[in-house]
């Protein structure tokens, strides 16, 4: 009942406003950073907030399929905007790190190569590039649904690497990044639960 109500309501809601909504937090963050609203270390705050939003978005994206399968709630049309926004948030996170945080090109390169948490973070970002490039109807047609779906399984790996990146970068064993990683691993693991064969209804 509830699922039906949600589905019929959402059917009337277009997906495009998500892009507009998605632009609000980064714009607000940048404005707050410039005007002193993010505390005494605005660079880290912006960097961490963008990373965290990226993590939330990728988790939201991973929820779409299980919700449809077990909750009968259809959010399929929102999955593409969620995925594309994830990419742009992580790109922003990376850009803040490059330009405002580390700043020095030789140190950026050294960090990417020598610091495992940076390496896996970069890895996750690179994995998302083919995903964002093919997040359009033309690419789905061009690749064919099967191939496209296979390619987009990279999301699972990117999400897990993103979680590990967070676990790895903090000092000590902190609970928050481990919870996010556990949620991501759990959501990815759901994909391997075999679909029950439909029982043929005897005529």
């Amino acid at each position: 009942m509830i699922a039906q109500f949600i589905n019929s309501t959402l059917r009337k809601v277009p997906a495009w406003p998500l892009y507009v909504l998605g632009a609000v937090p980064p714009a607000w963050l940048f404005y707050s950073g410039v005007t002193g609203g993010l505390g005494v270390d605005p660079v880290k705050e912006m960097e961490h907030q963008m990373g965290l939003w990226g993590l939330w978005l990728i988790i939201a994206g991973l929820c779409v399929t299980p919700l449809r399968r077990w909750g009968n709630i259809n959010l399929m049309k929102f999955r593409r905007p969620i995925g594309i926004l994830t990419f742009f948030y992580i790109a922003g996170h990376l850009l803040i790190w490059l330009v405002l945080d580390v700043q020095i090109p030789s140190q950026i390169l050294a960090d990417i190569i020598k610091r495992p948490y940076v390496t896996i973070g970069m890895g996750a970002f690179v994995l998302m590039i083919p995903l964002v490039v093919t997040s359009n109807n033309w690419s789905v047609r061009k690749l064919g649904a099967a191939k496209w779906q296979k390619l987009h399984k990279l999301t699972y790996l990117a999400a897990i690497l993103g979680g590990l990146h967070f676990v790895w970068l903090v000092k000590g064993w902190q609970i928050e990044p481990m919870i996010y990683t556990a949620v991501i691993v759990g959501l990815v693991a759901l994909r391997w639960i075999p679909k029950r064969k439909r029982v043929a209804v005897a005529a």
Binding site: V34, G36, V43, D101, K114, Y117, L169
Partner: peptide
């Protein structure tokens, strides 16, 4: 001597705003 997970060659001074130089 770098920290195994990050460089110690430079630092970010706190309080310089978002465009503070390392």
């Amino acid at each position: 001597v770098n920290h195994p997970r990050w460089s110690q060659a430079s630092e970010r001074p706190i309080g310089g705003g978002i465009f503070a130089k390392r």
